[in-house]
Nucleic acid binder design. Structure first.
Lengths: 246, 246
DNA sequence: TCGACACTTCGGCCGGCGCCGAAGCGCCGG
DNA sequence: CCGGCGCTTCGGCGCCGGCCGAAGTGTCGA
């Protein structure tokens, strides 16, 4: 028959993400940064040799890009398209995520839930708050899919965001990652806002991978530009784990 | 570590599409219709028992929905999101597609290249022609991702398309499937146009799965609404297979 | 120049999974 | 009521692929 065009390609790409260890690598790389092979090996708990084989496969399959620097091998996701694919696959899976047991793990999870990056844009409660503030202020509208309003275009210009142009990648895209169960802003605008927030010092990276922290000037900027208060970022209560005086 | 939230889900879903037989099923189901287990088994060239096992896995994994009717088991893709995922995965794979050898296969491929459906919207040269005509007439614009213009909104209304509202699914989305190497229109607008074209009798389904044919009134309508001529649908030459007097 | 370190290659082990055929079950048509 | 047909269950086979450890290669720092 004839629908079999594309079968090898589909199954090959899916096969790359089908292995838990490779999936873990890709999820880790969703922070948008380049990791060394050794870091990934430790993070996944497998031998260095195993890591090499997996990375070879992912690079050959076009999901990862690599840069060799001295005795290190850096890898990162090959493109925003790949990042989006990984997100979508993970989001499709129904997942009652288990609550981690150790205290270290819980505080880490707490930070990530608060504010983090998702490849090249903001996620966590900060990402959700920013997105909803944009909708509330008429910068975005979500009838028939999320989109930028004329008001929004003016706002983007007034803030001084430099949004990538001439690309097929949509300026505005709702992203539902696998931890939050609410949408936040991705696309070139999401990337531009995140990048601007980092360079302007509104947020800074912390020791925890993917986690970010809102700085005092950042809080002020978010309030002025989007009407976001510290309370909006604290979340809807129920977030402090019961029985743990953190 | 902590990026492992979502790892089981990601690898499980990817694993479902990693098997060539299951991938073939999903690609076949991209026509948006429900197939019986037996049809899929014949199409993929595997035993009925094998098919049962695969379908169980795909249904349990949430990729497929099933309806039991008498002694038949009908399955279809669970949602447009799943269809989009399958498309994206297949499109990501670099694929020099082989030219089929038999005459039957070639004529079938020819029909599919001409005009077909892709889940719930138009693809093939017809899909590309419609999309490019929409861009040419200012109905769509593709700066910063494809989107509907004000002119386009008026056009949609004048044609009488009923576009689904209140959904997160974008009205306009570029779709790059694994046969064409050019974009065509998906999203709720793409679905609405395809559905309208079918009910209005502009196009009809043929014996070949997924293939559609433009009717004489359809050709007239496309010309009037979008300025599409019969020549636009014939393709850019080079489509008749060399050495075969079809 | 000489270790230490990051990564790679290779061989071998082992578990999982896709496949089939045979037998069974339930629905439909005659 | 009976035969045919579509689907399902089960047991068993064979292969593919992920994993490791040991040995090898190249790079950096002292």
């Amino acid at each position: 028959m004839e629908a079999e065009r594309g079968v090898p390609g589909l199954s090959r790409v899916a096969g790359l993400l089908a292995d838990p260890t490779r999936a873990r690598f890709c999820l880790a790389l969703l922070d948008g940064r380049a990791w060394t092979a050794g870091e990934l090996a430790r993070q996944a708990g497998v031998a260095a040799s195993t890591t090499t084989e997996h990375l070879n496969a992912l690079v050959a399959g076009g999901l990862l890009e690599q840069v060799r620097q001295g005795r290190h091998r850096y890898v990162r996701l090959a493109s925003p398209e790949v990042a989006e694919l990984v997100e979508r696959l993970a989001a499709l899976a129904p997942g009652p995520e288990p609550v981690p047991r150790s205290l270290r793990a819980r505080t880490r999870q707490h930070r990530l839930a608060h504010a983090r990056t998702c490849y090249d844009h903001l996620a966590g409660r900060l990402g959700v708050a920013v997105t909803e503030a944009m909708i509330g202020r008429g910068i975005l509208a979500d009838s028939q899919g999320l989109h930028l309003t004329p008001t929004g275009s003016a706002w983007v210009e007034s803030v001084g965001l430099t949004v990538a142009r001439g690309t097929r990648r949509p300026a505005v895209r709702p992203c539902l990652d696998w931890t939050e169960r609410r949408f936040h802003l991705a696309g070139t605008l999401g990337a531009a806002f995140c990048s601007h927030a980092l360079t302007a010092g509104w947020i800074t990276r912390t020791a925890t991978p993917r986690a970010v922290e809102v700085t005092p000037p950042g809080l002020e900027a978010f309030g002025e530009l989007l009407g976001i208060t510290a309370g909006d970022l604290r979340g809807a209560g129920a977030e402090t784990v019961p029985g743990t005086p953190v």
